[in-house]
């Protein structure tokens, strides 16, 4: 009981600290923090699908693109208010993800990865070609939402919006995974055959995991649209998906907190590396995937959690992390 209290207190103070920071830091720094939050959402989705359910999808970029383009088109071409596009994007992501998963999840492991690979590689050329809808290679410019109140700057307001969305998402997901859904997904990851014998309807749960992760990707896409201000095809390449997997691995795939760590890495690593060389980012991501999968498959958070748990000899009940399954990534 006290562990939960401690965890909750940390969470509250953490939030207060962040809120305080928003009024202190520069616009660029707030922008980076906003990006951390936004990426944490899509990485959480990757964690659910790959870390929890054990299915590899390379098509993250496709569903982020769905979210981004829906948001951009509705606002720029049809004049819809920006806040309506976020739930619409999430629903679109959910149902498209579910739809894709219906035929796709009949495939196992490598074959599923290959199918998602096909979808992933198709994204950029199709986006570029579908001129009338997507405005082609030049992309769509989207006006960034401005703050509705005088005491908040636009960039601060956008940060709080992202934070609010992220909190809602994280709470929803945490509740989803703490219950029987989470246990079913872990069972599927560990041993599909046994899981199905134990009565887990594989197709439904795997489809749910896929749909949820796609919805999260779409939400990220919509938020990206409103924070970057432009939506264009080359951002949604296969490499994006691979980098999200890298960030997920680094953060420790099965934890909510790991998603945040992944978000931090997603934002600050490119910033650091870009000073040297554009290619350095991808090189470091690639190397980290290899290094971590070979020597530290549980990621930073997972490995630390493991050490911490072994020391304290019992499960830590922190509210920040989803209960860590015994065998993490993969």
């Amino acid at each position: 009981m006290t562990n939960r209290l401690v965890g909750a207190t940390i969470a509250v103070f953490g939030l207060l600290a962040i809120v305080g920071l928003v009024f202190v830091l520069s616009e660029y720094q707030i922008y980076q923090l906003t990006m951390v939050v936004i990426f944490a959402i899509v990485i959480l989705g990757t964690n659910i699908l790959t870390g929890f359910t054990g299915q590899l999808s390379l098509a993250t970029n496709a569903f982020v693109a769905v979210g981004s383009y829906i948001a951009a088109i509705l606002v720029a071409d049809y004049g819809w208010p920006w806040y309506t596009t976020i739930p619409i994007a999430s629903l679109a992501g959910f149902f498209l993800g579910w739809g894709f998963s219906l035929p796709a999840l009949r495939l196992k492991g490598l074959y599923l990865a290959t199918a998602t690979l096909a979808l992933s590689v198709a994204v950029v050329p199709v986006l570029k070609r579908a001129d009338p809808i997507t405005h082609g290679a030049s992309g769509i410019l989207v006006p960034r939402p401005e703050s509705p109140v005088a005491w908040l700057e636009g960039y601060q307001w956008r940060f709080f919006v992202a934070l609010a969305v992220a909190l809602v998402v994280f709470v929803l997901v945490r509740n989803l995974l703490n219950g029987h859904v989470g246990r079913a997904l872990i069972a599927i990851r560990d041993n599909e055959i046994v899981a199905s014998i134990e009565g887990v309807n594989l197709a439904n749960y795997k489809g749910l995991a896929f749909a949820v992760s796609s919805a999260l990707s779409a939400v990220t896409g919509a938020l990206l649209c409103f924070n970057v201000g432009i939506v264009e095809p080359s951002a949604f390449s296969l490499d994006f998906s691979v980098m999200m997997i890298a960030a997920s691995v680094l953060g420790g795939a099965s934890t909510v907190f790991g998603a945040v760590v992944g978000g931090v890495i997603s934002v600050y690593l490119p910033t650091l590396a870009n000073d040297f060389n554009q290619a350095l980012v991808g090189l470091i991501y690639g190397m980290t995937i290899v290094i971590f999968m070979v020597w530290m498959p549980q990621g930073i958070v997972g490995t630390l959690t493991d050490i911490f748990q072994r020391r304290s000899k019992k499960r830590s009940g922190s509210d920040l992390a989803i209960p860590v399954p015994v065998r993490l990534y993969p």
Binding site: V242, G282, L283, T288, I289, V290, M293
Partner: peptide
């Protein structure tokens, strides 16, 4: 991961 690393 190797793909990303080698390509870059």
């Amino acid at each position: 991961g190797l793909y990303l690393a080698f390509n870059n």
